[in-house]
C-alpha cells in the first residue's frame, strides 16, 4: 500500500502549486475543464505516491501533469467528452490574473503564447511559471538539457516577434 498523506497539509501544497500545474495543464489540453481533470488526477497521484518517487516534489508534480495529460489525450472516451465540451466552449478563459490596466496586455501575451509551437510553449511555461531549471525541464519532458535550452530560446524569440 502506498504511503498516503506524507508531509504537511495538502491544501498548502495545492494552493502553492495548483495554479502552476493548471497553467501547464492548459498548454496540453484543449479546454479548462480538461486541464482541471488533469490537475486533479495528477495532484491525487502525487499526494499518495511513496516519498522515494519525489525527491524533487515540484518537478515530479509537472512530470505527473504531463503524463496524465498524455493519458487523457489517448483515451477515446475522454476525447469524445472533450470534443463535446469543445463544441460548447465559446471563450478561452484567461491564463493570468488580470488587473484592469493590464488586461489587454495579458490577453495579447496569452494569444502570443498560444501561437507558439507545442514544444516551445511547454518549456516556456515550465521555466517561467513552473520555476524549473533547464535540467529539471529536460527530466520532466524526457529531453536533453540542451534541447530544453534551445526550445526556450526559440520560444522567447518567437514571443518577442509575436508581441512586436
Amino acid at each position: 500500500m502506498p504511503e498516503i498523506l506524507p508531509n504537511g497539509n495538502w491544501n498548502e501544497w495545492f494552493e502553492k502549486y495548483g495554479p502552476k500545474m493548471l497553467l501547464y495543464a492548459r498548454q496540453k489540453t484543449p479546454s479548462l475543464a480538461d486541464a482541471e481533470d488533469v490537475v486533479q488526477e495528477a495532484f491525487v497521484r502525487f499526494w499518495k505516491s511513496p516519498a522515494q518517487y519525489r525527491p524533487e516534489p515540484h518537478v515530479y508534480l509537472f512530470v505527473l501533469v504531463r503524463r496524465v495529460a498524455i493519458d487523457q489525450g489517448r483515451s477515446r472516451i475522454r476525447r469524445k467528452k472533450r470534443e463535446e465540451r469543445a463544441e460548447n466552449w465559446t471563450e478561452n478563459p484567461p491564463l493570468f490574473i488580470d488587473s484592469m490596466e493590464e488586461e489587454e496586455n495579458h490577453r495579447m501575451i496569452q494569444e502570443s503564447i498560444e501561437k507558439l509551437p507545442e514544444e516551445q510553449k511547454e518549456v516556456l511555461v515550465l521555466k517561467i511559471w513552473g520555476e524549473l531549471t533547464l535540467s529539471q525541464i529536460g527530466r520532466t519532458l524526457e529531453i536533453s538539457q540542451n534541447t530544453a535550452a534551445s526550445r526556450y530560446r526559440y520560444a522567447l524569440q518567437n514571443l518577442r516577434k509575436n508581441l512586436a
Partner: peptide, 30 residues
C-alpha cells in the same frame, strides 16, 4: 526583459470547485 515581464504575470488560481474535487478524491483514497 521579456523574461522579467513574463515572471510578473501570475497564473490564475484554481477554482474552488477544483479544490473541492481534489479534497474529495484524497478523502476517498484515505
Amino acid at each position: 526583459d521579456l523574461e522579467k515581464k513574463l515572471k510578473q504575470l501570475s497564473p490564475v488560481n484554481c477554482s474552488v470547485r477544483l479544490e473541492e474535487r481534489v479534497g474529495k478524491s484524497l478523502d476517498r483514497e484515505v
